[in-house]
Nucleic acid binder design. Structure first.
Lengths: 116, 116
DNA sequence: CTGCTTCTCTAGATTGTCAAGAGGAAATGG
DNA sequence: CCATTTCCTCTTGACAATCTAGAGAAGCAG
C-alpha cells in the first residue's frame, strides 16, 4: 500500500503557476490543461472545473495568458490559451518563490533539533 | 539580489503539518512555534498569530496535540503543546502526502513536452 | 433519437489565512 | 516607583482560492 493515494486538490496557491507552466509548453484549452495536470501529477492532483475556469479568467485579466477560439483536433470549438511575455516573467517568479517555499518546508520537516 | 525575498505566509494547507513537526521535536508554546518556523524557514515564512492560535485549537480539538500550562524559561506562563500518538500518525500521513504533492509539482515544473 | 464525451462556464459555500488589534504579566530603564 | 518594552495569549472581521454541484452546447456512436 505504498501506492497511489486517491487524487486530491492542487496545493493551494500553486494552480496559477501550474497552469502557466502547462500553457508555456504549448497553447492549450482549459479542459486540456486540467487533464494534463492530472496526468503529469500521476493522479495526485485533480483539477475541478470550478477552480480551473476562474483561474483562467484571473490569469487573462492580469495579462499573463491570452485566449483565442480555435478548433480542437476533434472538430470542436475551444478557447486556446497561450503565455504572454508578462506571463513568462510571472511564471519564472512564481517558480522561484515555490522553490524557496518547498525548500523551507523540507528544512522544517527534516529538522532534528534546534538548528537555525 | 538573489537573496532573501521578504517573508510571506505559509503555503496554504501546510501550517498544521509544520506545527505538528515543530512540537514533535520538543513541547513548545504557540508563540515559540511561530518564531521557530520563521527561523528554520530562514525568513521565508512568517506566521501570524491569527493563523497560529486557531490552528492550535483545531489541532487540539482533533486530538493531535495536547496543551498544558507551564512556566517558560523566562518565568512567564505559557501553554505548552506536545504531540499525542494520534498526532504522530497524522504528522506522518501529512508528511507523506506532502512529499507526493511536492514531487508532483516538481514534475510539472520540469516537464518539457508531452510526457505522461 | 438517446446517450456519451468534450468543453465552457456559473453560483454558492467552505476554509485557511491575513491584518489589526486587545490585554495581561514580567523585565528593563529612568 | 513609574513608563516602556517584550513576551505571550487570544479575538474579530475580511478576503482569496478552492470546492461541490450543477447548467448548457455541440459532436459522435449506438
Amino acid at each position: 500500500m505504498t501506492a497511489a493515494q486517491k487524487p486530491g486538490p492542487v496545493v493551494q496557491g500553486t494552480l496559477d503557476m501550474l497552469i502557466l507552466k502547462t500553457v508555456a509548453l504549448q497553447p492549450m484549452h482549459g479542459y486540456g490543461v486540467g487533464l494534463r495536470i492530472e496526468q503529469i501529477s500521476r493522479g495526485v492532483f485533480q483539477v475541478n472545473a470550478g477552480s480551473l475556469f476562474p483561474a483562467f479568467r484571473r490569469l487573462e485579466r492580469r495579462g499573463w495568458i491570452q485566449g483565442e477560439w480555435r478548433a480542437t483536433e476533434n472538430n470542436r470549438r475551444a478557447k486556446y490559451y497561450m503565455l504572454t511575455d508578462a506571463g513568462r516573467k510571472q511564471l519564472q517568479s512564481e517558480a522561484r518563490e515555490w522553490q524557496a517555499q518547498s525548500a523551507a518546508i523540507a528544512r522544517i520537516l527534516e529538522a532534528t533539533s534546534g538548528e537555525v
